[in-house]
Design a protein around this nucleic acid. Structure first.
Length: 213
DNA sequence: ATCCCGAGGG
DNA sequence: CCCTCTGGAT
């Protein structure tokens, strides 16, 4: 085991103590709802997404309903989430592809998920990990920022970051670890002003060790 | 001003 | 690699 792998395992254990519940903060009851909610969460807070999805999912309960939806109707419902034109187009196109190519069911593998319009690796990994229980690495803005600061990954490219983390994280730990980087990124290691003083992994973090504040 | 659990296109 | 899409929160 390399020193870096050892340090990673220590960080994992600290995060488990600090954040016992490695849960997704989006509200959903099935694979389609998590897929849609995660797409809506781009450049938008989860709380804002959770405000619009009850209305959205009542009107569009399944893939067929999204496939038949009018763009203007979907735009109206999701507008407050931002990027609403592309998101509305993506949701309807995804509904259509799910119906036409996947029997109306959300696929349980990366290759097929990435075929869906507007679904990238971040969203695909989240669905694979949280709904299908697969060893996902959800490499979002928090995950990249925190693992860069800690010294576990190098560079901002999401795909490269994901691959570096796949080498570092035990597969059975990776999904929960990514959830916890999000929780820690929101509460402590914020994008603007990282709160190293109250950070539970400061002594294991490259940035935390250098930061004197 | 700057950020929010991105994705697609150039 | 870069840019764009976009409203809301701070």
């Amino acid at each position: 085991m390399t020193p870096l792998q050892n340090r990673t395992l220590q960080i994992i254990e600290r995060f488990k103590q600090e954040y016992p519940d490695a849960v997704c903060s989006l509200d959903y009851v099935d694979a389609l709802q998590l897929l849609i909610s995660t797409r809506l969460a781009a450049q938008c807070t989860d709380a804002r997404v959770n405000l619009v999805t009850p209305t959205l999912f009542e009107k569009y309960p399944d893939a067929q309903a999204f496939a038949n939806a009018e763009v203007a109707d979907v735009e109206e419902i999701i507008k407050s989430c931002g990027l609403y034109k592309t998101k509305a187009r993506d949701l309807i196109a995804t509904g259509k592809m799910l119906v036409e190519d996947f029997g109306g069911v959300v696929p349980d593998n990366m290759e097929d998920l990435l075929k869906l319009p507007g679904i990238g690796r971040k969203t695909a990994n989240l669905v694979l990990g949280d709904v299908f229980g697969k060893p996902a690495v959800v490499c979002d803005t928090h995950c990249i920022r925190l693992t860069n600061l800690m010294g576990l990954t190098v560079g901002k490219d999401p795909y490269k970051c994901e691959m570096q983390l796949r080498e570092l994280l035990p597969p059975e730990e990776s999904n929960d670890f990514c959830h916890r980087t999000v929780l820690h990124g929101r509460a402590v290691c914020k994008a603007r002003n990282p709160q190293c003083k109250i950070c539970c992994v400061r002594d294991l973090c490259d940035y935390g060790c250098q930061n004197n504040a």
